[in-house]
Design a protein around this nucleic acid. Structure first.
Lengths: 244, 244
DNA sequence: TTGAAAACTTAACCGGGGGTAAAATCGTGA
DNA sequence: TCACGATTTTACCCCCGGTTAAGTTTTCAA
């Protein structure tokens, strides 16, 4: 019963509510208590707006709120959040694959585009693209039933020297960084091998696709997440993702 | 100056305002005085809601309102209306050509989809489809500068016997009719020749694409608009279109 | 331990967009 | 010409989602 009314909830709430839920999921990875002020900052609205919205979401049973402590998604809230994130990531994928946008410009466009996606349009987009499993930046696309595939990946910055694997995600929204990375070929799916690591968070030297060598500063490296060869391919505590 | 601020106006108004402007254009073909009650009926809202919106649009210089007489678009209002209609018809075309919807189901979907179209997305969609000039039902798509191409066509019901030409538009939103017509091949672009006309608004007999014969009742025929061979190819007082 | 700063919430207000009920106006037939 | 019915507008109400200003509560450092 809780299973069957899940899509109903999603359709009955406003775009703004979906935005808040998705942001709460993003910040707290679907589980943690999240501060209202942080939500407000991320959504670029005032704190009072957030507090009032949190109360509305609580009345609908989508979040729990402990005043002065934080907000946490209920199971229903998490499902709604995941369906919202699904639309966003599908939209990003669509903008890149079908409408030929650059991956650095899709975040904002997708935010607007989301509002124009009905269930039917979502299904047609999904089918046209062959049921993609990730957004252009590598973040997994939640299923239609509201479950998030888990990736077992980590930031390049914590990978030991002489490890090889595959670029899994690029966790930044900054267009300049995204453009630079795309030009360098550092995109999800590319093969990498970590050759060297400078001291004190120094630059990393990687071999890309067994061909090109790149030197990457730590700021950029922190945005690059990778799946290392030999690691099991699921279950990660970083599953939620910071972007999108 | 009035030319250059036209897109600015369009971006500064709400989705609801665009809906009202498009509806006023549709009813009055961009020129006539339109009753607030009629607008309300078409948009399925109350009269007071319409009157209040008309006041807002007037404050922005997009309509003129003579109380108890009616509403008329200003040049700026007409331009904004045409840009809204452009988005709607592009969305319909996109849903049919790219997302493989049936033409009978796109009207409502396009209404929602409109809200998610930015200027950039509009341009990419337009280019991907090769800059289409009509929506799937044959209505012309206004240009980016807000001008409506004129079609010189008329309802099949007023065409004389033994005339040949091309189906130009199908002016109905009823899914059943649209499905029937599509199955019969009566779609914009198809060739027709009017063979016979029954008395007293009786059924019409047409030859389609020089191959198939169809008998069409007057109700259906009223929805079929055609361009007859030999007619000049522009300038029509029916230019605005009743649907979409 | 306590008091100031920071974090968070409440209160009060605004505009957009929807509704109903009642008043105003228009047009027309007696 | 005048009164009645239909059309249209005004007056008030609702909720949503945003704001700033003014409290609370918590935290942290002296």
């Amino acid at each position: 019963m809780s299973q069957s009314n899940i899509p109903a909830t999603f359709d009955e709430i406003s775009d703004a509510m979906r935005d808040y839920l998705a942001e709460i999921y993003r910040i707290g990875r679907g589980q943690l208590w999240v501060s209202t002020t942080l939500i407000a900052e991320q959504l670029a609205v005032s704190s009072p707006a957030t507090v009032r919205m949190v109360r509305r979401l609580q009345e609908r049973g989508l979040v729990e709120h402990l005043p002065y402590k934080g907000v946490r998604l209920t199971p229903d809230g998490a499902t709604a959040a995941l369906l919202a994130i699904r639309r966003h990531r599908l939209a990003e994928r669509f903008l890149v694959d079908v409408l030929h946008f650059g991956w650095h410009e899709v975040h904002h466009e997708a935010e607007v585009m989301q509002r124009g996606i009905t269930a039917a349009i979502e299904d047609h987009m999904d089918a046209l693209m062959g049921f993609p499993t990730t957004c252009p930046h590598g973040d997994p696309i939640p299923s239609k039933t509201g479950t998030m595939p888990l990736l077992n990946d980590r930031p390049l910055t914590v990978v030991p020297k002489d490890t090889a694997g595959t670029i899994s995600r690029v966790k930044t929204r900054e267009p300049e960084k995204l453009q630079y990375l795309a030009a360098a070929g550092i995109i999800p799916g590319a093969r990498f091998a970590l050759k060297n690591r400078g001291p004190f968070n120094g630059p990393l030297r990687i071999l890309l696709n067994e061909r090109d060598e790149h030197i990457i500063g730590s700021e950029l490296a922190a945005a690059i997440w990778v799946a290392c060869d030999g690691d099991p391919s699921a279950k990660s505590e970083f599953s939620g993702g910071e972007d999108d």
